[in-house]
């Protein structure tokens, strides 16, 4: 029996090609823009821009690995951070540090995620439709029942300060100063944690197993219901956390800001090699896809394209990526 080498296995994966495309794109943009992409201030801007989308994508990835489809995470994030900042503002918390805000937001996120989890774990339903329902419901909660308002200039100082957390200052050749956001470290940390969960814990393998074949997972002895419940709770908590990061970075809490966010994150995760049928996808691939999109959208100006075309190129990359990977899958099944 022929044994496959590490190299053979690697080159079969979607992640590998996304990575190649990323490198290629970076080189092309660097050349076309006359070396502007690797200006220090440009690099830190791109890294900073990756944080929120990257965190959302990691949560989305875990759901997709399990064969689910989560439309509700932006609504969970919006409700959690709006509620948390409103409470902090009214109680006078978070003036010196951001702990309380994050704690509240994560707890709210987890609770909302649990609601998804209870429904999805106990009933054999299409997760896309369930989360579409909860998304609408959560939006109704935040803007209807709680009537949460925009918080901009009055945002607690602790949150504002956290968003400005700087690791070091860089200076471009033109003398422009920018600071490297410390929040990028959070993205790296979460990416490592998610990667460890997916690969090194039985819970993570359970997600792949359920995504691959739910009936078999049940027969193999996994508690599928419990696993799904925990998954959606974790993803909810992560959404709450990510939402709060966004509040700190944007220095404002706007309940409506997350509307339709899922429509850009989910395609990116698919581009990164996750399958809508479940059982496929890695942290590395997802991060490559997010980097690719962030690099391209943030360097439009550098290569002389109007920034209004950002969304178009964003969509185009994803369309091409998904088309190519589908064609490849078609060829493999032949």
């Amino acid at each position: 029996m022929q044994k496959s080498t590490v190299w053979q296995r690697m080159t079969k994966r979607t992640e590998f090609y996304i990575f190649l495309v990323l490198i290629l794109m970076v080189i092309v943009i660097q050349l076309v823009s006359g070396g502007q992409l690797f200006e220090p201030n440009q690099v830190v801007t791109i890294l900073r821009a990756m944080v929120v989308d990257g965190l959302f994508a990691l949560g989305c990835l875990m759901v997709m690995v399990s064969g689910g489809f989560d439309m509700s995470f932006p609504a969970i994030a919006a409700l959690s951070y709006s509620l948390a900042t409103t409470i902090c503002l009214n109680a006078g918390w978070c003036t010196t540090n951001a702990w309380m805000g994050f704690l509240l937001s994560v707890v709210f996120g987890a609770i909302l995620g649990m609601l998804n989890g209870v429904i999805i774990a106990n009933f054999a339903l299409n997760t896309m439709l369930v989360t579409l329902g909860t998304q609408t419901f959560f939006t109704g909660l935040s803007m209807g029942l709680f009537e949460l308002k925009e918080i901009t200039s009055t945002l607690p100082k602790g949150l504002r300060a956290f968003g400005e957390w700087s690791l070091f200052e860089v200076e471009s050749s033109a003398g422009l100063k920018s600071s490297m956001s410390g929040l990028f470290l959070i993205l790296i940390a979460v990416a490592i944690i998610v990667s460890l969960i997916l690969n090194k814990t039985m819970f993570g393998r359970a997600l792949y197993a359920i995504g691959g074949n739910e009936v078999s997972a049940e027969r193999a002895g996994y508690n599928v219901k419990k696993t799904k419940f925990i998954l959606y709770t974790i993803v909810g908590a992560l959404a709450g956390f990510t939402g709060m990061i966004r509040v700190c970075m944007a220095r404002q809490s706007i309940p409506k800001a997350m509307v339709n966010k899922e429509m850009t994150i989910i395609p990116a995760v698919i581009l990164g090699g996750a399958s809508i049928y479940g059982g496929e996808g890695t942290v590395f691939g997802t991060m490559c896809a997010i980097s690719l999109i962030t690099v391209v959208t943030n360097s439009m100006l550098l290569v002389g394209i109007d920034t209004y075309w950002q969304k178009f190129f964003n969509g185009l990359i994803i369309l091409i990526g998904i088309t190519i990977s589908s064609l490849q899958a078609k060829r493999n099944t032949r």
């Binding site: 054999a124 329902g133 609408t136 109704g140 909660l141």
Partner: peptide, 30 residues
């Protein structure tokens, strides 16, 4: 405010989906 409608719609969808798992022939099936 108008967002109460979304609240009701969302809840309605989830409830109907759950109810549908108890149906077999007609309507929404799992």
């Amino acid at each position: 405010n108008t967002y109460y409608a979304s609240l009701i719609w969302g809840a309605l969808l989830v409830i109907v989906l759950i109810l549908s798992t108890f149906m077999t022939d007609e309507g929404v099936i799992s």
